[in-house]
Amino acid sequence: MSEFIETRGLRKVYHVGGQTVEALQGVDLEITKGDFIVFMGHSGSGKTTLVSAIGGLTRPTEGTVLIEGNDIWKLNDKELSHFRNRKIGFMFQSFSLLPTLNVLNNVVMPAIFSGNSGEKDSDALKSKAISLLSDLDMKKKVNSFPSELSGGEQRRVAIARALINDPEIILADEPTGELDIRTEREVIDIFSHINDVYKKTLIVVSHSLSWIEKARTIIVMKDGLMYKDLDDPVEAIMSGVCKQ
């Protein structure tokens, strides 16, 4: 596997209520293509800030984010939007689906912004969306609305939407948050399936230890610093003491 994502000296400083908070303290990271990486750590550890900087959502105070050798933070708004649209499939814990759209339209929504929603592309897109939904066991729900779906089903739809533009990276923030254990297991299995079958690079932020079993790489974040290749990541998270 070759180097795919690279961060160099990534720093992010927030100014909150007159105080300065250093969310990232010079993070150097390399992610290989096809990796299944899970960022873990307590709230405020900087894991979401790091992932959002990689995903083109939060501009770092210092440092670079290189994806396939290109610094994404040198792109303008339009280029960055296009990058997010084509390169990354996002999945969020909540506020993920638009309640006015049915499942099918929610899945094809990223295509609206990539300009692939014309008459010609429409049928192909819908076929692709239905195929993805079938793969996620959601074919019967294509015409349902988000309010008619369970939490697990909503996550599946969000996964299908993240895959619709065939991005190389799937970036998920707490994709199993607020789910019961059984449903959480199903969602983790789907991510594992996406990594195995679709060969996507998965970057997940989670508090849940259930991911450890399936993830290829576990990174623990603490006070804006990154700890990789830990002997016992569970112990590190639980004790808050990270030793490499």
Partner: peptide
Amino acid sequence: REIGMLKAIGASRYQ
């Protein structure tokens, strides 16, 4: 938040 989600999945300012 919905607007943030739309931006995250690729909606530009103009869109």
